[in-house]
Nucleic acid binder design. Sequence first.
DNA 1: CGGTGGACCTGCTGGC
DNA 2: TGCCAGCAGGTCCACC
Length: 273
Amino acid sequence: MPELPEVETICRGLRQVLPGREIVTVEVLESRLRCRVPRDFARELEGRVFTDIRRRGKYLLISLAPDRVWIAHLGMSGKLIYVKTTYPRERHDHIIATLDNGHELRYHDPRRFGFSVVVREAQVDEVPQIRHLGPEPFDEEFHDRYLYDLASHSRRMIKDFITDQRILVGLGNIYANEALFHAGIRPTRRAWRVGRSGIKRIAEAIPRILQEAISWRGTSFSDYRDGEDRKGGFQEHLLVYGREGEECRVCSGRIKSVPIGNRSSFYCPSCQK
DNA sequence: CGGTGGACCTGCTGGC
DNA sequence: TGCCAGCAGGTCCACC
């Protein structure tokens, strides 16, 4: 489900309400979380106080004093919501942290692709999932030259390349397709054949499209909700993703779909070469 | 090493 | 109306 804009939206929302709150109790209602939630997960969190909520790629890093970080990835269908204790519980609410102010932080994930782990602050960068992540698209180290140096040595399809979280973090199926549309490049082009000007357009389109999606609080089709269980609005502004057979909003041609590695990619044959 | 294809899950939709 | 194949925002691993 969530790509960078959705995780960023959740992050900003939780940052408004969690710092200073104490976790009183934690219930882990689902034991089949693919061994990614340690048995002592609840005890690691109980009695601690939220300090800071930040994001690294598609991961939420939730700091708690003294000296713990709850690292959460929401997979395809995960939600992390802050609601009153009276807010109706649902099927697939797997982890419920009861706070000291009549609210709960609930981790909900029907498909259970997400994962959670609790580590010490100093260990965050050593966690394998975090250690191998590439630069943030909004950081200075991510620029067209960086992307070109890597792309010029890669024979992979460009869409596959830019969704590799080791190259850069944050892009998933929606925003990779959108960024390539904005750059005028077909998702099936081999990375090394995109060329310098094409890579430059991609490197510029990525942060732009992500920023725009953040301003709309992310994209919601069915599952995605922010930290207050509300939908995002960017689905109204998508130009190619999920629009197979519909009219291109730029040239009125028909949007096509092509599978890349078990996943649909969308593009406009006349706008993207 | 790189690239591919399947596995991991539940739920919803569309076609028959 | 009902059933079932196919597909969904992500990662990881085995295999060639």
